[in-house]
Design a protein around this nucleic acid. Structure first.
Lengths: 240, 240
DNA sequence: TCTAGCTTCGAACACTGTTCGTGTCAAGTA
DNA sequence: TACTTGACACGAACAGTGTTCGAAGCTAGA
């Protein structure tokens, strides 16, 4: 008669806990990756850690993404999908563009430094395409010629991304609010003010000005500068 | 009588070949690093390979640079030193600024993708300071208010750097000349043209326009857009 | 001549992205 | 029901990274 309940040999036992994980998919990987970036920042996003978040190994991810770059690309597109699309029916086109730029910046800043991956400016993801389409509709609706519209949109995106990256860098270094940043900017100002005045007369004189203005103010200025140059191409002449 | 010319025991011998190397210095490290970037690109620049270029080990570099970031920072400043400074005595300030932006772009592009390291926009190296000083002199000389001058300079640098990065990315992928790029752009154009026309009417209609214009033309447009917005702040009103 | 301090750097650490080959399991076929 | 097939999963390994430690070698001062 066989002995009941023979314990499994311990050295052969461990297997793995089923972990109750759903069967893995590109969607699940992206969600895990985004969770990780939001929690620990872009530098913490390694293939191993994403896999760990899903209770698996790094090799499994390569079934859904050719490489890390592709994963990041799709992750960025997913975030861009959070940006509300501008409406071509808005009464003031310039205002609508401006509002949309602010919205983009806000979305990027809400995901730590993920925006750093936005390098190659040509957008290919579905959400990026939708956004580009909507922006083009607004610009063309304002009577801006196609060439100007296409190139300006490039430049606007560039400014938004660059500004979001800068904001993210500051935030990562603990300068999240204006109050947090004050000591840092004061330091920069003092450094500039104490340069040799004969070689750097302008920098010395402008030291306070150089660090003036909040991130929001500088961003607003950049967008306005761009739109100011753009307005003269819109319907109705030079746009003043 | 001692035997002459006893060969050293081979198993203890190797030591190292003197390699006729000068005693290592921050300058020498930077030169080696720049040589490496120019030859093999930024991705090839690892501490080990820079050290190898100098016939030593990676650990030696840390006597001169706190870390890789500091090395890259100084490397970039060195390259910025190659840009000729704009002259405040130029007859047309806008033209001088434009010329300087072109010169910067050319210098960046001459060093492969090194420009990618230009992220934190606040410049601290001596050459960056000299360049900023000279640009500020031109802008202030044009009667542009200090705040506007400071913020615009930020934006101009941003555009120059971003454009140089984009050019570098294209170049790294073998699209160095316009002829090299043609097949790639044709591909992008066809992709856009074949999107569903009901969801992307503007992108489909503008497909040829989206890829129109050489890198130089687009860069010129970006700078002009910026200067167009800036001109209205210069002495003499809105600058048309 | 002997010591003190500085420069140099081999070896090691803890990571990274990516690939290979095995292992597992469900569906389809005989 | 038994067997095969194919897709998915993933541990282990590879070649590389930035950085640190501690032991050597060298030079200058006593």
């Amino acid at each position: 008669m066989p002995a009941a309940a023979i314990p499994a040999p311990p050295w052969r036992a461990p297997k793995k806990p089923p972990a109750a994980r759903q069967p893995l998919s590109a969607e699940a990987v992206l969600s895990a990756a985004l969770r990780l970036v939001d929690r620990d920042g872009l530098d913490a996003l390694s293939m191993r850690r994403v896999a760990q978040e899903l209770g698996t190994g790094a090799a499994s991810l390569y079934a859904y993404f050719a490489n890390k770059e592709e994963l990041l690309e799709q992750l960025l597109d997913r975030v861009i999908g959070e940006v509300p699309l501008p409406s071509p029916a808005a009464p003031d086109w310039a205002d609508e563009i401006k509002r949309s730029c602010y919205a983009s910046r806000a979305v990027f800043c809400a995901h730590r430094d993920l925006v750093k991956v936005a390098r190659a400016s040509i957008p290919v993801g579905p959400n990026s395409l939708r956004y580009t389409e909507a922006m083009l509709a607004v610009l063309r609706g304002a009577g801006i010629p196609d060439r100007i519209a296409a190139w300006s949109l490039d430049q606007l995106s560039l400014v938004v991304v660059a500004d979001a990256i800068e904001a993210a860098i500051h935030a990562e270094r603990g300068r999240r609010t204006e109050a947090d940043s004050a000591p840092y900017f004061a330091q920069v100002r003092d450094y500039l003010a104490n340069l040799p005045a004969d070689e750097f007369p302008n920098l010395v004189a402008m030291a306070p000005t150089m660090v003036e203005g909040s991130g929001d103010e500088r961003f607003a200025f950049a967008i306005d500068l761009m739109l100011g140059g753009l307005a003269r191409h819109a319907r109705g002449g030079d746009g003043r």
